[in-house]
Measured scan of single mutants.
Amino acid sequence: KKIKIKIKVYNPETKEVLELEIEVSEEEAEELAKKLAEELEKKGYKIEEVEI
């Protein structure tokens, strides 16, 4: 079964909002969402919402 992940991120420095969407297997979904959120935060983005 495929799971659709939508991530909306906001960069306070540039006032930019990015929306990302990807489909992955159920097993990958939670781990991938967690890794993406961590990487984006390292780059200065503030995570507003992660929906699985």
Rank of each mutant, 00 (worst) to 15 (best):
E19R: 13
K43H: 08
V17M: 10
S25N: 14
K15M: 03
V9P: 01
E48M: 15
K6M: 05
E51Y: 14
L40F: 07
E41K: 11
K6F: 10
K46D: 15
L36H: 02
E48S: 06
I22R: 10
E28G: 15
I5W: 01
G44T: 00
I52H: 02
P12I: 06
N11F: 04
E31Q: 10
L32M: 06
E51S: 13
A33Q: 03
V50Y: 04
E23H: 14
N11D: 08
K46F: 12
K43T: 02
Y10L: 12
K1F: 05
E21I: 13
I5V: 04
N11I: 08
K1V: 07
V17W: 04
N11Y: 03
T14I: 05
A29E: 03
K1D: 06
L40K: 00
E49C: 14
G44D: 01
K35T: 08
S25H: 13
E51H: 08
L36R: 01
K15W: 07
K43C: 14
Y45K: 15
L20E: 02
K35N: 06
I5F: 03
P12R: 07
E16A: 08
E19T: 15
E39H: 05
P12S: 05
K2A: 11
Y10M: 11
A37Y: 08
K42E: 04
E21V: 14
E16R: 05
T14F: 05
E19K: 15
E19D: 08
V24M: 02
K42N: 05
E41H: 04
E41Y: 04
I22Q: 08
I52D: 01
L20H: 04
V24F: 05
A29R: 03
K2G: 06
L20F: 15
E48T: 08
E26P: 07
E31F: 06
N11L: 04
E27P: 14
K4A: 04
E16K: 14
E39G: 03
K1I: 05
L32P: 01
V50Q: 01
E48C: 15
E28V: 09
E30Y: 14
L32S: 07
K6E: 02
K34Y: 06
K8Y: 02
V24K: 03
E51T: 15
E27A: 12
E26R: 06
A33K: 03
E30G: 11
V17L: 06
N11C: 12
V17T: 09
I47G: 00
I22S: 08
